[in-house]
Structures are given as structure tokens and as C-alpha cells.
Amino acid sequence: MKTLVIADHDNGILKPETSKTINAAVKLGNSIDVLVVGENINEMATQVASIDGVSKVLVADHSVYAHQLAENTAELVISLAEAYSHIVASATTTGKNFMPRVAALLDVAQISEIIDIVDADTFKRPIYAGNAIATVKSLDSKKVITVRASSFDLQTEQAAVTVSTIDSAIDNQSSSFVSVEQTESERPELTAAEVVISGGRGMQNGENFALLNGIADKLGAAIGASRAAVDAGFVPNDMQVGQTGKIVAPNLYIAVGISGAIQHLAGMKDSKVIVAINKDPDAPIFQVADYGLVADLFEVLPQLETAL
């Protein structure tokens, strides 16, 4: 049987999650087709064609798919589903939005956010904010799976395979796009960065997040935040790391003024090296930190910037 991967992209940019999800799909052992859904997406389809392990790229390019509304995407995937034993997407906000719809329409369970593949039917996934890892076997004939991309590697390149166009324009009409407020940033994406520096409530306000900028510049880091920092309005929501925000696993994660609540740890504790800067020596973040610095962040952040 074959696997269908739905590519993840944003505003014309192919997300690295797509390559990592294909890396996971390869482990299922089937041949892989990748569906790219959107509008004006030919360039991305070409990029997908050169990701190792892909047999064929399918492109559904139409204005009805411009904003990747779940209702339309799900029906499009259903129209292709028959040929596939596994339907796989990244557990990004796009994948999380349309994939359960696909599963329900196919009358199968969805296995969410897998971090490992045991065999073509059996997967590992975190539950309870990552405090337990469940091994789950699917009993359905078709598997609908979302992949936690941070647990898989980027796939290497191959000579480009065929790209074919699907003539499809499904407009469910129960939902329509109104607007988007895209957060602009020159920095690497949180989920793709090798280094992440995050600030918490201890930063005190949004202006103080500037203290992280110089360090992030020097390390080529993305900047993240705890929920408390987002809730207090210091920074936008898409910077939230955690159980209900973004899951990151960089080489180096620096937590500044973050206490280390279960829900925050769920989003970063698979980082290779963790540094914590906190003035409270009993903060739980120190229990997962490889290097802890008990200090006032306002004192040590400027020092750190200079020392790098």
C-alpha cells in the first residue's frame, strides 16, 4: 500500500515540518505520494519533488485552497484516500485543523502527534503533557496520523520526481476566510531553529524582551516565550512554547525567567542542551536544565551578550 503525506506550508514557503514528516513516513515502509494544497504553489511542489523518498507529487492549486480551510482540504484528501493505507500530516496548526476531519469522514481514529514508529500499525506518542509515552496500535484499516516534527530529522535530497496536477476545486462553503495577521520576524522559525532563547514572566514586560535580541542575533536563535509571557501581552501568541503551544527540540534551549511548569516543559524538554537562568534556586526548570545559573536576569543577560 501507499502513504499520502500532506505538505505543510505557509504563505508560499514550504515548512521544514514537511521534510521531517516525510522522514517519518519513510519509516512506514510504503511508497510515498505528497499532496501540496493551496494557491500558486508550483514552486513548493518542485521543492517537495526533490525530498528523498517521495515517489510522486500531487498538486491541487486553486483559489478555494488559498487559505487551507479545513473543510475544503479534508474533502480533497477524502477524494484521494482510497489508494492509501496511511494518511500523514505534520502536527502543525494546519495539520491539527484538517486531519481529524479526514479521520472522521473516513470513520477511523486519528493517532495524534506520533514521536516514533514501531511498525506500520504501531506508534509512540506523548500523553499527559509528555509525562508518559503511550505505545498505540491502530486497529483501523486506514491510518490517519499526525507527526510531531521535532522528533524526526530533515530528509535528504533526491533527483526530482514527477509533479502532477489534480483538477479539484472543493468549496464546502460552511466557512470562509476573512483575514490573517502574520507575525513578521527576521529570525529563524521556532520549530526549525538550532538554538532557542525563551523569556517568561520574569522578563516583566515586552520591552525587556529586547534583552534577548542581541543574544539571539549572536547565536542565530529563535525567540520563544512561556504562556505567562504571552498572556501578559509581552509577545505574540505564536511564540508560546509548551504543551499547547509549539514543541521545540533545538540543540540549545535557554530559558530565562521561566519557572518550568509541566506545560512549559512539555514543549522543550527534548532539547539537546538546556540552560536555565532564574533567580529562584528552587525553580523546577533547574530539574531539567543541564546548566543552571541562579541570578537576576537583568544583570546577567547583558553579560551573556558580551561574552558570546
Binding site: N11, T93, T94, Q173, F177, S179, V180, N237, D238
Partner: peptide
């Protein structure tokens, strides 16, 4: 208004 990976998206539902 939806919290999505890149920011905020607003949709209108019937």
C-alpha cells in the same frame, strides 16, 4: 479568530 503557527487567522462560519 484562530491562533495559528504564524500568527492569527480569522474565519467566518455559517
Amino acid at each position: 479568530t484562530r491562533e495559528v503557527d504564524g500568527g492569527l487567522q480569522t474565519v467566518e462560519l455559517k
